[in-house]
């Protein structure tokens, strides 16, 4: 039963493998060149398992001790997972104890496969979801470890590599921009964060930005909701 599910799940994850190994390695090297010990990106890859947030976390770890800011940033950046969870409520029902691992590993990529995949006839759904999630996590942790360890051995300076985080975030934003029906939410996010950055400075603009975004989304809900 497990093997059959593995055979159905593995091919679906191959495109994710390429992406995770490449981005994971870039993340590992980025963390090392930012001066963090190799264990930090590897541990974060395993316990947080949310790619874009881990890049941001590396940046925050270099900025100073601010656990509240880090918590709020993680809530905001990963708020989309709330939506994934709501969509998977019924699919993840009745799969036994594996459910808790599936929820833990509900990253963008696991969600997109498990939400859209037609599990073949005769294959156990729970195990299929489990393998997809576990394989994805293995790819990500492997990529991060390779990058973190390579970053320890190769002692060359790579000025400008930190831009990989910016490039990643811009591309994720663009990808979402091309897919979304209405740009109002994206534009609200850009504008609110930009204004808060000017007003509060780079050290403390995240929490005000989040508050302003939620306030605007709530006040103009009627106008925004019909276009979503």
């Amino acid at each position: 039963m497990k093997l059959k599910a593995f055979k159905a799940a593995f091919p679906k994850t191959i495109p994710i493998m390429t992406g995770f190994l490449f981005l994971g390695a870039a993340y590992g090297i980025y963390a090392r060149t930012s001066g963090l010990p190799a264990a930090v990106p590897i541990i974060m890859a395993a316990v947080v398992f949310a790619g874009s947030m881990e890049f941001v976390a590396v940046d925050m770890l270099c900025g100073g001790f601010d656990p509240v800011g880090a918590l709020v940033m993680a809530l905001m950046v990963n708020a989309r997972h709330l939506f994934y969870g709501l969509s998977m409520l019924t699919k993840y029902k009745g799969v036994g104890a594996k459910k808790w691992y599936l929820i833990f590993g509900l990253c963008d990529e696991s969600f997109s496969i498990n939400c859209t995949a037609d599990v073949p006839e005769g294959v156990d759904k729970g195990w299929f979801y489990f393998w997809v999630t576990l394989l994805n996590q293995c790819y990500w942790v492997t990529g991060a470890s390779v990058g973190a360890l390579a970053g320890s051995f190769i002692k060359i300076e790579l000025p400008g590599l930190e831009f990989v985080m910016t490039a990643l975030l811009v591309v994720i934003f663009l990808d979402n921009w091309l897919k979304e029906k209405s740009h109002s939410s994206s534009l609200i996010g850009l504008a609110a964060a930009f204004c808060c950055l000017l007003f509060f400075g780079s050290g403390g603009f995240i929490i005000p930005s989040m508050a302003v975004i939620i306030l605007i989304l709530t006040l103009f809900r009627r106008k925004i909701e019909v276009r979503l």
Binding site: S52, V56, M76, V77, A79, R80, L82, F83, M165, T166, L169, V170, I172, F173, N176, W177, E180, H183, S184, S185, S186, L187, I188, G189, L190, A191, A192, A193, F194, L197, I206, S209, M210, I213, I214, L217, I224, E225, L228
Partner: peptide, 14 residues
């Protein structure tokens, strides 16, 4: 509604 706005915030953050 939040995901789009959060991604916008991240771009400014970066």
């Amino acid at each position: 509604a939040l995901p789009g706005a959060a991604l916008g915030l991240l771009v400014i953050y970066s």
